[in-house]
């Protein structure tokens, strides 16, 4: 192998200042998306949760009254409303990311169980109504 190409190859595999730009680019993108998405979400009055399975609304639960619901898809999610907040409190799906997401209470918030293809969304108040469909 020629020494020149050896040098070139080594440079390709070493961290260089330009790579910091890549990191900054990703962080900036995250900031912009977060700013656009979350500024549309505030308001606590009249909040309710919608539960979707396979993109279809299967149940609506007001956050003002404590309740529990079971969503059965490929797996079984138990959704609990308590004290104005909502969470997936138990699930038999692999990973249980939905349970680990914990309690959410703000309009626009959502809990997703990908294995079960279930999504819990909080709506109402002055939350976002212009969602993409």
């Amino acid at each position: 192998m020629a020494p020149a190409s050896e040098k070139k190859t080594k440079r390709v595999y070493a961290f260089r200042p330009a790579d910091l730009l890549a990191v900054l680019l990703v962080l900036a993108l995250a900031g912009v998306i977060a700013a656009v998405f979350f500024t549309r979400t505030v308001g606590q009055e009249g909040l309710y949760a919608e539960i979707y399975r396979d993109g279809v609304l299967v149940r609506t639960m007001p956050l003002s009254s404590d309740a529990e619901a079971v969503v059965q898809g490929l797996y079984r999610n138990t959704v609990t409303v308590r004290g104005g907040r909502i969470a997936v409190t138990s699930s038999d799906c692999p990973g249980e990311d939905c349970v680990h997401t914990g309690w959410i209470s703000g309009a626009g918030g959502s809990i997703v169980c990908l294995p079960n293809r279930v999504e819990v969304r909080i709506r109402g108040g002055s939350g976002p109504d212009a969602e993409v469909r």
Partner: peptide, 18 residues
């Protein structure tokens, strides 16, 4: 899932991906 709301996860996932 036919839900645009999932975009809300992207900022966090991008931070993790960095």
């Amino acid at each position: 899932m036919r839900s645009g709301y999932l975009v809300g996860y992207l900022p966090f996932l991008l931070l993790v991906s960095a």
